[in-house]
């Protein structure tokens, strides 16, 4: 069983919701990422989603775009990102780490080279925003043969027949994008999330996490009751940006405080 599946099955046994946290590797500095990852786990994150910086992050709102730009100022690459995962694995073998990013850095590296390196580094999953099911065949073959989960997005606009195809190809968990728009947007509508999750949930046994637009304990709670977990990103990236200039430990503290808040809210459900 993959580390991601293992995590969800343990959470389920304990009646807990998954807290998935996104930060961008190398934001605001190369040194900030690893301590922040450990701190997030310490404060209750179950799965880390590590953003791979890209020059053209077309699904991100302004906050996460800035995170990518900060990381690119010191030329943080996909190779560097896998190196950080390998470092993290030296002291943590249980928390799943998935890479979230865009197709081109992976294309540039080559699918099979990427998959080899990801496996060696201890990467558990990949979420490529601009590789929808139709375009994923070749990369998915490489990931499947190495037991790396491919994490798919489902959107409010995804038709049911399509969602069924996606679910049939997915492993690990499914990621429901809670709103039409980019990361960090402010128009989360809990009723529509509920309706879609009911519809899509009937298609699959896989855990379902909800992300985009969750910014605090209250919104996390309101969505978590409907799903197996929540994904938070923009609030963390915003905090990391604001902590620019501070030491890696101080940055980690800032992020840890947000996590601890949301963790408590989820555990109070």
């Amino acid at each position: 069983m993959s580390r991601i599946s293992q995590t969800f099955s343990e959470l389920k046994q304990n009646g807990r919701k998954a807290l998935v946290a996104y930060i961008v590797n190398g934001d605001p500095t190369r040194e900030a990422t690893l301590p922040a990852m450990h701190k997030m786990v310490e404060q209750g994150v179950d799965i880390i989603e590590l953003g791979v910086p890209f020059s053209d992050p077309m699904a991100e709102g302004p906050v996460i775009q800035k995170g990518h730009e900060r990381a690119l100022e010191h030329h943080v690459s996909l190779t560097d990102t896998m190196a950080v995962v390998a470092e993290f694995r030296k002291t943590n073998q249980s928390t799943p780490v998935l890479l979230m990013g865009y197709a081109n850095p992976v294309e540039r590296m080559g699918y099979s080279v990427f998959a080899d390196k990801a496996e060696a580094a201890g990467v558990d999953g990949l979420l490529t925003v601009d590789l929808p099911l139709e375009e994923l065949t070749d990369l998915k073959r490489e990931l499947d043969s190495r037991d790396i989960d491919n994490i798919f997005l489902l959107a409010p606009t995804t038709r049911v027949e399509r969602a069924r195809d996606i679910a049939a190809n997915a492993s690990g968990f499914l990621y429901y994008v809670s709103l039409k728009g980019v990361t960090g947007a402010g128009h989360l509508d809990v009723d529509s999330v509920k309706q879609k999750l009911t519809e899509f949930g009937a298609l699959t046994e896989l855990p379902m996490c909800v992300g985009f637009g969750i910014k605090d304990a209250t919104s996390a709670k309101s969505v978590a009751v409907l799903a197996d977990g929540v994904v938070i990103g923009s609030v963390l990236v915003d905090a990391m940006g604001k902590a620019q200039g501070q030491t890696p430990d101080q940055i980690a503290e800032a992020v840890g405080a947000i996590i601890s808040d949301i963790r408590q809210a989820l555990d109070s459900l």
Binding site: M58, V129, P132, L153, A155, V177
Partner: peptide, 13 residues
Amino acid sequence: GRFVSETLIYALD
């Protein structure tokens, strides 16, 4: 091809 995020697939269809 069609390398876009899932939200746009519907609009492109």
